[in-house]
Simulated scan of single mutants.
Amino acid sequence: MLPPGKIPPEKLKELVFNRLGAPGERVLIGAGLGVDAAAIDFGERILVASTDPITGAEEGIGFYAVNVNANDVATFGARPKWFLVSILLPENSDEGLLSRIMGDLHESASRLGIAIVGGHTEVTPGLKKPIVVGTMLGEVEREKLVTSNGAKAGDAIILTKWAGLEGTAIIASERGEELEREFGREFVERAKSFIEMISVVEDALTANEIGVHAMHDPTEGGIANGLHEMADAAGLGFVVRGNKIPVREETAKICEFYGLNPLALISSGTLMIAAPQEKARDVVSALTEKGINASIVGEFVEDPETRVIIENDGERPLERPESDELWKVV
């Protein structure tokens, strides 16, 4: 049986990546481990395309759909511009649900300057919650293209904002009454508000102006899985320092309450950047000037077998999560 969440890498290699249709002559970057999007050659400009479903949330699902897909395109240095969306509704859904989802989609896309250009909408037998699947398209000048597989040994690993933002917001929304009894309403409202920070479009475009080798949006499996995905894509290892990885108090307390690992909690809103050491401080400064929290947490290393986290009690392997921590509580 396959676990909930992303399909494990070995199964992707066995069942997916060897069945990708005809060769694409203009495909510069196609499907692969840790690769967030595809890049297609259009001459002086590159078309960047990405697709992602939203399956673990109901409240704000349209907001998540736009921002998660926009994030993947932005990690290639591209500005997201066009969005296609498929909306799958449970049986017995009313018009109000569809109206709320479309309102979220419209508002979120408008805020980022994105046009919704097509899609599909249906009521789907067997669903318990709505599912929204988005495909985002963007473009970037050829010389500004950045890929998620471009990290180099010695690169600094930079994280923006905080680990587990999206997961924290989802749990606070889905389990709000329980959390209010434990921590109070103000705490829960702060945790819910983390949804407002899940866009990394400005993070990515700002970092790309300074000059970086790779960027990645760690979604399912959180920071831990994102590090593995980025290392997989580049054929590298990594060393990170646990005390440098930023975690908000609300995330830490919610994870402790439910027995979750914040580093394996879905983390849209955090951007993972591989930057040359000589530019790392400049990248952090540029992000900080925009009001975006940024931290240097480690570095990529040559040996792909070295994937460790250094904590107060010593060094240990940073295991790849089997599934996202979110699935334990929603």
Rank of each mutant, 00 (worst) to 15 (best):
A224F: 13
R307H: 13
L326D: 02
Y64R: 13
L227K: 03
A115Y: 13
T75Y: 08
I158P: 07
N225P: 06
P317R: 15
V308L: 09
G24A: 08
G134N: 04
E209M: 15
L47E: 07
S86M: 05
D41W: 01
E299C: 11
E91I: 01
L137P: 11
R248D: 15
I29P: 07
A274T: 06
G24Y: 07
L88C: 07
L105I: 10
L159R: 05
I195M: 05
N261Y: 13
I198P: 00
V201P: 10
H120E: 06
E305H: 11
V297G: 02
I292Y: 10
A115F: 12
A214E: 01
H213F: 05
V66C: 02
P9H: 11
I170E: 01
E141Q: 12
N261G: 14
A252K: 09
V308C: 15
E166I: 05
G242T: 10
S199M: 02
P246Q: 07
L127Q: 05
V117T: 13
G60T: 06
D72R: 14
M136E: 03
G34E: 01
L165K: 04
C255T: 12
K152E: 15
L227Y: 01
I114R: 00
G5Y: 01
I131T: 06
K13V: 12
A224Q: 12
A74D: 04
R320D: 04
S173C: 13
G242L: 11
T168H: 02
L47F: 06
L97V: 04
I46Y: 06
D303P: 02
V48C: 01
V200K: 02
S267T: 04
A57M: 11
G176N: 13
R181T: 13
H120P: 03
W327N: 08
E249C: 08
D155Q: 05
